[in-house]
Design a protein around this nucleic acid. Structure first.
Length: 160
DNA sequence: GCCAACGTTGGC
DNA sequence: GCCAACGTTGGC
């Protein structure tokens, strides 16, 4: 069992969008970064994902999702009309892969990046480190447990 | 294979 | 909307 953090801009795809899609899993397409792709390739069904909102008013962890399929080719890379089109990715040799995830839980409020940074036990988390832009990051079991504990306790994630 | 130029990310 | 940090591209 491994743990991850995945970023999404809520205006594009939020935790509520994920919740509303509960009956069908959501394919995490559009990732065009090798490190992020490699992380998704090493995911296994049952892995848990911290869902993170970025580029918004209160960036932070907003919920929990579960990996429900291993990585498979991202078809948007084949489609010239897609914003994610990549001519170098072919059906015979797909360059980009992604997993399917499913909604598990939405936290009562955002566990903000500010709150994460204030927690000494989480100082090693990638997401709190400067210049860390990776949209799919590994999370250690200890970090994961701590985040869940904070996120499920009302008031802990309030932004000042 | 170096590295400058460029594009993107994402917090502020 | 600014800008620092980072990744990718492409000329040489």
């Amino acid at each position: 069992m491994q743990y991850w953090l995945m970023k999404s801009e809520p205006e594009t795809f939020s935790i509520e969008d994920l919740r509303n899609a509960l009956k069908q899993s959501t394919f995490w397409d559009g990732v065009r970064n090798y490190q992020a792709r490699n992380h998704m390739r090493s995911m296994q069904v049952g892995d848990l994902v911290l869902f993170y909102h970025s580029s918004c008013k209160v960036p932070g962890v907003v919920g929990l999702a579960e990996v429900v399929s291993e990585a498979h080719p991202d078809k948007t890379a084949f489609d010239p009309k897609s914003p994610y089109y990549d001519p170098k990715s072919t059906k015979d040799n797909p360059r980009w892969h992604a997993v399917d995830i499913q909604f598990k839980e939405a936290f009562p409020e955002t566990l903000s990046l500010t709150a994460l940074k204030q927690e000494p036990a989480l100082s090693s988390m990638k997401v709190v480190q400067k210049g860390q832009r990776l949209s799919v990051q590994p999370v250690t079991p200890d970090e994961f447990k701590k985040v869940l504990k904070l996120a499920r306790r009302p008031g802990s994630g309030k932004k000042s």
